[in-house]
């Protein structure tokens, strides 16, 4: 029981990270109806940016952990936003209205580019980092197993919740959010009504990338090790989360992320660690085939 409780805690923490990435997939999908294949790689870039910022801050002698984390978060999110903006500007915008496969292939190309860019610029070796925060709360002890809620996990969950709260406020309460939702409903109509759709789409990528960078920082803190390849696997898993939750639905993305996190952790704990990625990927295939609208998604009617 204690063991299961520990897995539940771990799964929810991991799920938060996936949820943050999934929000970016689902936002872009909602607005321009395509999978942003490069999104997982933006997450990876975000993790590298966080690593560089943390190293830089410690070189500058900043020893306060909360301050370092806050500065890193702002830095990584800000720079990743430039990445998100550039990706849309370079690889997607010129292809709106081009033939069907073009944006997909361009997106794949962008993903390969970012991944290898990170490899070329930062090297192929894995980057291990000293844990920033150690220790935690001992919750209960049972069957000779201590259930621990680490400070790190608390930090991750709290930060994620704060970021998601800001994000929710942004999409529901601000004019920007209103334009985004209008574009999601009907891009052409929104344009006719005087919404700058190009700008709205750009901002969608920017926000998605910033959230992915936050997820990158969390990933770095949680695992303490990153490499240029993490974006690929985490990207597919987060996309699975978005599909599972119902693509286009923002609460669905977070819900899906939590589910995928839980499934992955419990699968590793009770079945096999080796096949944990297979489990997540199989869920993707099964979800797409049997419930393509996901848990909270809308059914789409094909226009003929």
């Amino acid at each position: 029981m204690a063991y299961a409780l520990q897995q539940l805690i771990n799964g929810l923490t991991l799920g938060m990270i996936y949820g943050l990435i999934a929000v970016g997939y689902t936002m872009v999908y909602g607005i321009i109806g395509m999978i942003n294949f490069a999104h997982g790689d933006i997450f990876m870039i975000g993790a590298f940016l966080s690593l560089i910022a943390l190293l830089g801050l410690s070189a500058l002698g900043i020893s306060s952990v909360p301050l370092a984390l806050a500065l890193t978060l702002i830095f990584a999110a800000g720079i990743a936003a430039i990445y998100g903006w550039s990706v849309e500007r370079i690889a997607y915008r010129p292809l709106r209205g081009s033939f069907r496969l073009a944006p997909l292939i361009s997106a794949i190309g962008m993903s390969i580019t970012l991944q290898n860019f990170a490899q070329v610029s930062q090297g192929a070796r894995v980057k291990p980092m000293e844990p920033l925060i150690s220790g935690g709360l001992l919750l209960t002890e049972g069957d000779g197993f201590a259930v621990q809620l680490s400070w790190m996990q608390i930090a991750i969950v709290v930060t994620t919740l704060i970021v998601l709260a800001i994000f929710t406020w942004l999409v529901t309460k601000t004019p920007l959010g209103r334009s985004m939702r209008a574009c999601e409903q009907d891009l052409k109509m929104a344009g006719l009504l005087g919404i700058d759709t190009d700008k709205t789409i750009s901002l969608t990528f920017v926000i998605g990338a910033a959230l992915a960078a936050v997820a990158g920082l969390m990933f770095l803190l949680y695992y303490g090790v990153i490499d240029f390849y993490i974006g690929f696997i985490a990207g597919v898993k987060a996309f699975t989360a978005a599909v599972l939750g119902g693509i286009g639905s923002l609460p669905g993305a977070v819900l899906g992320g939590l589910l995928i996190g839980l499934i992955e952790v419990f699968w590793s704990a009770y079945f096999s660690v080796e096949y944990k990625d297979v489990a997540a990927f199989s869920i993707l295939i099964v979800a797409l085939i049997f419930m393509p609208t996901g848990l909270l998604g809308r059914t789409e009617v094909e226009k003929v």
Partner: peptide, 8 residues
């Protein structure tokens, strides 16, 4: 890297 850029 070249392949990726070329695709785009």
């Amino acid at each position: 890297l070249i392949f990726g850029i070329a695709l785009v």
